[in-house]
Amino acid sequence: MTIASPKQEQPRRWLRGGMRIRMFAYALVAPVTLLILGLVAYPFGFAIWVSFTDQVIGSVGQFIGFANFEYLAQRATFWSAIWNTIFIVVVTDTLKLLIGLGLALLVHQNLPGRGIFRSLLLLPWAMPAFVAFLTWRVLYQPIGGGINLVLTQTGIYSGIIDWLGTKNTAMASVIIATVWRGFPFWFISILAALQAVPKDLYEAATIDGANAWQKFWAVTAPGIRQVVIVTVLLSSIWTANGFEHVWLLTQGGPSDATMVFPVLAYFGMQTQRIGEAAAVSVYMLPVLAILVVFATSLMLRDED
């Protein structure tokens, strides 16, 4: 009869203890994993499947391959939605970056009352989107709207401008309201990044004789680069998937001048063509995936 030595028993006990720890870790992660699979993975996969069917409300639908995508590609409204979505994302993100960066650099200085100024700048972001865009819709009204009243009372322009009902002004009106609603997010993100930049770098740049512009490109820009990349990514996704800023102002009109992907998908839901509406959403996936991969590669390159 052989008796196991303590040296042989100790590794076995350690393995059993390690297995218990791993099982406990899996048990802690399991609820979150199931929640993600149920609320994200399943609806995501189901939407992709539905986009390849002719499903309408009240029926299961049959598999029709790429018929929905081919039908959308033949519609002028679809191509208008592509162009308008890209245009709104690029222009609004550029304006939000310029406004948010400028205000962040200003508030970052030791100015009197800057705490109150920060709070006031966050009001557009704190306001519910529904209330914000309905307020802008009232301001854009051709008769009795605040903007036209200011123009006529000050003598700048005596005529009546239908800001949301004219193709020449509808897109600009949507962009202005969207920038006003979204720039505080850029402002607070960049301001937080500025506060994390070591002051020693600015002092060293001053000793080297750098001016304000050189300090910005040599110290400030590298210090806030990663925050700006993440903010661009989040803002682009939110704007591309945004619905209320277009629907509450123009509903995609006039004549598809402000039509975007979410509104086009909503029109598909209104006509009960679930498969076509899902195909519109699936069309956006490659563009957003490329944007995510590009932003991630830039961040990883900075870390390297």
Rank of each mutant, 00 (worst) to 15 (best):
V263G: 01
F294I: 01
V232P: 04
G182M: 13
I143P: 04
K167M: 07
V280D: 13
A76C: 00
K215P: 08
S173D: 08
D302Q: 09
L149E: 15
G61Q: 00
R22F: 10
V197L: 07
I3G: 01
K215I: 05
Q62A: 05
V131Q: 11
F69N: 09
L285A: 15
G159M: 05
V282T: 09
S80D: 10
W217E: 01
A192H: 11
Y283D: 10
N211P: 04
F216N: 03
L97R: 07
N241S: 12
Y283P: 09
I188Y: 11
G253S: 06
V292G: 01
A104F: 02
G223P: 13
V260H: 00
W136A: 10
W217H: 05
H108C: 02
G61P: 06
P142Y: 07
Q55R: 15
D54T: 14
P142F: 07
Q226K: 15
T33V: 14
A27Q: 07
L106A: 12
T85V: 01
S235R: 03
A212N: 04
L234I: 15
Y283A: 15
V219G: 13
F87R: 14
G165Y: 04
P184D: 12
T135C: 13
V263E: 01
L288H: 03
G100E: 03
A177Y: 07
Q74R: 13
A104S: 11
M269L: 15
A278D: 11
V89K: 02
G165M: 05
W163N: 08
F187S: 10
L106R: 05
F261Q: 01
T178M: 14
R75V: 00
I290P: 04
L298T: 11
P124A: 10
F267S: 08
F294A: 12
V91T: 08
R181S: 11
K215R: 15
I36Y: 14
A212P: 00
G165S: 03
V246R: 05
A47I: 14
R13Q: 05
